[in-house]
Design a protein around this nucleic acid. Structure first.
Lengths: 330, 330
DNA sequence: TTGTAGGCGTTATCAT
DNA sequence: ATGATAACGCCTACAA
């Protein structure tokens, strides 16, 4: 592996001059610059990022933490972040936390050791206090997931509004018996509480009481959705509509419902969340809440680079529009 | 950021001793070991990977190149690779080439500069000759995509057989007018040629002539599939079945066909490729060729670590089983 | 069993 | 405009 010294030797100049050329510093004559460039090419020279980082340079790398990349919502989010970063000359390091606290911390350590200039977290596993302690090593930005106070720059969606829109839509369609399905819990304080609030608000406004039997928590996958549908089928008193926390769960519900001979939306209206590709693939096509993934990525990078450039930037929270997409499942 | 020197000072010992503790070397008394561990914890010390890499250590990091992570096939493949790597204490660096030659090379440079111990390529954009020149810096393993000679360890599937199975299945179902849809070209030598061969073989055996009008090249997405279906509908002489290069394209075809009032499989039988989650979501469920993603990841890591451990290992190619999954779309 | 010193490749500082 | 040198944090001969 060729080093800067090799280039220096071959071009008959000093390491310093070579370094100047590499980094586009001034005070290098055109002539010597050419010599250096030629030597670099001849040797197939590539600067060693480890040495650069060790030397304390910016890494032009941003870390992104997602729970799991196989979740289409996150793979699209990562993609949009990466695209935006690339345009600005930044690389992206993708890391899956698998919803594991320790893995999350392990990744945050990259910030400490200057492997990345900043970290974008699309989900939070540890307590914020734990994560906060890493802020001194570099900016941490929250995209998608968020905490309550504005303790870090956040790119967020009004999840509460999203759930409200979904619930309201079902009510407007004449439903009174509405089930609810979340990836989190139905606690006052747990994961997914904002969506819970929004949903509750919609029902409350219409003076509809929530039936606890129709609340399903910790549901994530297509398989989970099928399971939920099976449970519903066994009930004496069944809901006529269901609001879910993800398009995938909604998909599972629809598939299983059809399998069991139910008609969607006549026998059961279904609302998803995310507007993933699957929403248009399902038959009937899924009514869902659209999360503006591309904008989220774009904005995250914009804010992150801004902070990197100007560390004194005020910490702000940005809210992106979330909207209801009505299709055939309601 | 605390360094090894800080730990040494706090524990009243030398850098060497601290290093020994970090790396679990022998010849450290229990007592001093405890002191060191205590100091490390107190300072929140994390070794700096850049310094380690610069020093020429193994990085316990493996790079994976995929064309695009939003493609579910690749996100699942990456996932399985990462899972397998994690079990062995390795990290995975994910990189998207976006089917761009330069980006691919940029990533291969990480090998040169010892950022990763080895690279797993799930797709190849540049000529093999170009890529081969990076082999001197570390092992390059081909997983999924492959070249013709055994010039590198390869984990591959018999794509030709897969396409043959798909074509044969349609023929067995009584079809004579079979269309073909590929993500590559229909050349003798281009991308996707193995599948082309397999498909051609199946038809050839049944003495069916291929109708060039029914060949669609460079098709990748759901939108592409819809487009293909539209083209078919405009034909006077329509195929009664279609074999596609991906479940997504197949999905687009099915969605559009239903939209236009065609019945699947009565009016058009459809075979996909990959057996992605979407295959079971589609209605009717998709008959497709299953690629054993989990096994591919597992095997790739196994072979990679083996080579890392023992660089003289013979270069071999491993073939994993590919199979036809019959569902409702045929 | 423990410590000293040198070097990995780079860039910033300070000469010249 | 160019060059010598120190320093980033770590590991490992070598010495004690």
């Amino acid at each position: 592996m060729a080093t800067i010294l090799d280039v220096a030797r071959l071009s008959g100049l000093s390491k310093t001059t070579v370094s100047r050329v590499i980094n586009n510093h001034p005070y290098v004559s055109e002539e010597k610059k050419k010599q250096v460039l030629k030597a670099m090419k001849e040797l197939g020279y590539t600067p060693n990022p480890s040495a650069r980082r060790l030397r304390g340079q910016l890494t032009t790398t941003i870390g992104v933490i997602v729970p799991r990349i196989v979740n289409p919502f996150f793979s699209h989010l990562v993609n949009s972040i990466e695209q935006a970063a690339y345009k600005k000359g930044y690389q992206v390091l993708i890391f899956q936390s698998y919803e594991d606290k320790e893995k999350e911390i392990a990744f945050l350590n990259l910030l400490k050791t200057k492997q990345v200039d900043g970290v974008i977290m699309t989900s939070i596993e540890n307590d914020w206090k734990m994560i906060e302690s890493y802020k001194e090593y570099g900016p941490i930005l929250l995209c998608n997931d968020y905490v309550n106070q504005t303790v870090a720059p956040m790119i967020r969606l009004d999840q509460s509004k999203g759930a409200y829109l979904g619930g309201k839509h079902l009510i407007d369609k004449g439903h009174q018996k509405i089930a609810y399905c979340t990836g989190g819990l139905f606690d006052e304080e747990g994961k997914g509480k904002d969506r819970n609030h929004g949903f509750q608000k919609a029902l409350h406004e219409a003076r509809i009481k929530i039936n606890p039997k129709w609340i399903f928590v910790d549901q994530h996958t297509i398989a989970d959705g099928k399971q939920v549908m099976k449970q519903i089928l066994e009930m004496d008193d069944r809901p006529t509509a269901i609001f879910t926390g993800s398009d995938e769960v909604a998909g599972g519900i629809i598939i299983e419902a059809k399998e069991q001979g139910l008609a969607i939306p006549q026998d059961l209206a279904v609302v998803g969340f995310d507007d993933q590709p699957i929403a248009e693939i399902l038959d009937p096509k899924l009514t869902t809440i659209r999360q503006p993934v591309d904008q989220m990525g774009e904005k995250s990078i914009q804010v992150m680079l801004n902070i990197l450039d100007n560390p004194e930037t005020e910490i702000k929270s940005y809210e992106l529009p979330i909207e209801l997409i009505v299709r055939q499942s309601t």
